[in-house]
Amino acid sequence: MGEALLWLGPALVLILGVVVYPAITLFATSFGTYSITGLRKGSAGFDNYVNFLTSPDLGQVMWNTLVWVVVVVVLTIVIGLGLAQFLSKSFFGRRFVRWAVIVPWAAALVISSQLFRLMYDYYHGIINHVLLALGIIHTPIDWLGDSRFVMPSMILVGVFVSLPFTAYLFVAGLNAIPADVYEAARIDGATPWQTYRTITLPLLRPAILIGVVLNMIYVFNSFPVIWILNGSNPGVGNDTMITYMYKLAFKSGDHDIGMSAAAGIFNVLIILIAVGIYLRFVNWRQGDKA
């Protein structure tokens, strides 16, 4: 038993230090009153939660978060499935294409977001230059300033940076499907679409489940993409819960760490509930049995 503890020890210390301790601190902070300097002035009771939940901006921010998470995750999964099919076929230059797909994942999110910020720029951005030159548009589009375009522009980047992981997850899933199942289907005369729908998709189910859950969490918590692309916009009209939480703590006129911590607790609950609902909805235990 003593030996077991020796083996468990480092992991336990790590979990306590990196997960439990910050969580306790966040929880404690959410019940404190803080000066703008960060000095604790005393207990706040539930005031931080009340102020946060009654904030006039909350509705807009929650809606943005919902749109952001749902659209990015759905597009990522759908495109990821297609991309994985493509990558698991053998063709000339496949190694090169596989590397090309993984690059956005290797680049830091901050760098990718900055690059997109330059590409989207109203005056100097390459996207406007190309669209103007091709005659598709006649005046430049303010991709990151016009409220009709900000969210779609951010979603595009969100999908771009989520794809590599998802596509590779599905490639691994596809490789795990035994070839004889396909052979049997072919002998039975199944069409390609039938094969895909009745064999590939069901057998990919575990990979898709994991892909959706992990992407939900990553995308919900994604800070750099929104922070950088939305950086020159006033107000909170395009913020998600994560950037809103940061603005509450350090950028808005509230400048309130306590209220921001309450938002942080609320965020953890939201994502847990969302993942729970999803797993319930797809009946994942049943999937295991099948």
Binding site: T29, Y34, I36, T37, G38, L39, R40
Partner: peptide, 8 residues
């Protein structure tokens, strides 16, 4: 953010 964390 950093200075406020230092005080906190």
């Amino acid at each position: 953010q950093q200075s406020s964390t230092m005080v906190q």
